[in-house]
Nucleic acid binder design. Sequence first.
DNA 1: GCTTTCAGGATCGTATACAATAATGTGTGC
DNA 2: GCACACATTATTGTATACGATCCTGAAAGC
Lengths: 231, 231
Amino acid sequence: MKLPTAPPSGQTSSSPIAEALSLAIHEHRIAPGTKLGEDELGEIYGVSRTVVRAALQSLSYIGLVDIHRNKGAFVAEPSRTEAREVFEARELLEPRTAHSAALRAKAPDIAVLHRHIEDEHSALAASDPGRALHLSGLFHLEIARIAGQATIARFIETLIARSSLIIALYWRRESALCDKHAHGALLAALAKGEADAASALMRSHLVDLHSALDLRPRPDRKTSLKEVLSR
Amino acid sequence: MKLPTAPPSGQTSSSPIAEALSLAIHEHRIAPGTKLGEDELGEIYGVSRTVVRAALQSLSYIGLVDIHRNKGAFVAEPSRTEAREVFEARELLEPRTAHSAALRAKAPDIAVLHRHIEDEHSALAASDPGRALHLSGLFHLEIARIAGQATIARFIETLIARSSLIIALYWRRESALCDKHAHGALLAALAKGEADAASALMRSHLVDLHSALDLRPRPDRKTSLKEVLSR
DNA sequence: GCTTTCAGGATCGTATACAATAATGTGTGC
DNA sequence: GCACACATTATTGTATACGATCCTGAAAGC
């Protein structure tokens, strides 16, 4: 496992280690289900297990990590049901934040969002889709911040985090490309203060994302194995 | 400081200590701003600081506790701005959960809710308003659970927790009594499967609660202190 | 040959010990 | 008598040590 030492990121987190792990997960450099051993991480970051444990605990509250007693910490693997819930929650919350953000956004806010989009494009150009995905999430989070609802913004932060895992697990390769223009159109509406348009654009953007996932229920692994072998 | 040893509560939390502290805060037996020293709590519960720290960390993620580096953990004191945000978020989320709950509630669900109301009344009769408030929160949380949206239910759990602190800080004594009938009417709508009615009742119930708070902006403590002392 | 059992190792859970930081109280100089 | 600097103390932050639990693999029994 290869991890960055401590990349500076504009994220709100407690410890530098939680920060680094969070970024690595967001950028799909650590796959869902990966075991995150305490000794191993302590070795990598040069700290004791105490601080590693605290970091893992914090990530488990966000939903990025699942901790099983006496088993250890693993990068979370959201089920299809959870995936649906996460996107339903986003479809409930984010149009509202987009609406508020359109009413409250000042010039510097728009500039920040603009920079996010630019970074996202350059990451794509550099064929770094993981980083592009992370930046895409930051775009959504920034809108929630601009909306001035810190409480809801924290909720959205956790939803975006889990969305990253969900995309890693359930993204349909055959589905259309990520619709680069969605964020651009959203930004335009925000810049013009068109709250209703921003809200509608956000909703349809999320619905698009949601429908690009393969969330069809699957039979249990056991059952399907039995079926295969009985032929 | 007098705390229960480990009361069994139907709450979702990690450690028994977080559980006990959470209950004590919900029942207004520990006031906002109270310092929660690690040694002190370890002494009370007969465990080392390690586990106390973990519990305090978990409470800080719910927003019940604020941790300041090198200062320690304190029962959170939500600002008026945060209070407004919390209730706005509840007014956004909970009518939706009431709607879903009305469509999905089975007989046992209704029974559980009914018991909650009974317990709440008996707590009031026993002049234990703290416990009544806690049970009132549990009523709301149970509805979110019935709605079958685990993700949103967790959000609501944190919102209810902070609501308890907000009520401790900003409740207007002169305001009308807690409107005992609100939960009863809500339960009736849920039992009959009247989703729209349940949603509307929930919304108005939350608006009532919100308006029973005194959230008028106040001058800083410092300023007022200075004013008082200069006379 | 297959299953079962037990031992070894590895990892987590908790307690304790040490280091670092902040708060408080005391003493001195003016 | 007041203000400032310093020492002392209390509390948190981090590391380490020990005990408990679970997983893995080999050997014995069927």
